[in-house]
Amino acid sequence: MMAGILWLLLAVMGGLAVLPLFASGYIISFTIQIFMWIALAGSWNLISGFTGYVSFGHVAFFGVGAYTGALLVTQAGWHWLPASLAGCVPAAALALLIGYPCLRLKGPYFAIAMLGLNEVVRALVSYFESFTGGGSGISLPPILSIAPVYYAMGGAAVAVTLLTYRIITSRFGLRLLSIREDEIAAETMGINTSLMKLYAFLLSALFPGIVGGLYAWYSSYIEPLGVFPLLTTITMIIMCLFGGKGTVLGPVLGAVLLSVFQELVWARFLFVHQAIFGALIVAVVLLMPRGIMGVLQERYRLPRTV
């Protein structure tokens, strides 16, 4: 079973690696979007799926990364790839700064604090107009070929998934799960829960920062409302829950299935697609609260590490 899954994954990866050679521009950009969602939903999973601390402001790391990448390209003349990678630095700094006080908050209080964080960061970006361009945003040079972005975004998706696998098969991963299960018991058993949460939060902020930088380069133009939308956080959450929180392949499945679903429905039912999407989410939460992977794991007795 495990070997089968592994082979399937390798085959899919092989297919994706050669996709830009023959696929249309539409397919490639759609796949880039899926990669982006895999990386974002997978990152959200690292803090919220594992420890149960629901972050409603994760797009803040994405936005900070996008602005870092855009500024490094336009102001400092960096190449887009290192500029995007550098996006993880301010994202990590922000995670440390915010995580240290806020991870002490429990349940809905943490969620709301994170929601506030995103609004604050967006307001700051809009306010410092001379530096960030304010509401009129930043324009980047147009990209000539999207294949490099495709591979970079794909790399981010793979890296997040491998990182998740590495964590879930480690004691660190078990410790994060024990925080979700019963934080007081975990603490009493000698687990430094504050530190573990901070590590998880830090790791969960890195890739949204990088992906944000790639997004800025790929879309050639960013503005505060475009890179700090609450909807992006909500989409990450839904994808992760749909696929299965606290699992390796859950965010991947959630990102792929929901992106494809949304694309198909959007094309056919232009006006009601959001209603259909919403109904699907309600159905999923009611019928399989542990997501697709949760159902599969229960039915086929799969280990958690899938």
């Binding site: 799960l177 019963d182 007081i184 430094n192």
Partner: peptide, 29 residues
């Protein structure tokens, strides 16, 4: 956690196992 690491362990009046970890993982963690 500092007290625990100095060598004091305890159980609770109300059970506090980690329900969504397996029995083995409850120990390994």
């Amino acid at each position: 956690h500092q007290v625990a690491c100095r060598g004091i362990g305890r159980t609770f009046q109300i059970i506090r196992v980690f329900p969504e970890l397996t029995a083995l993982e409850n120990l390994l963690v």
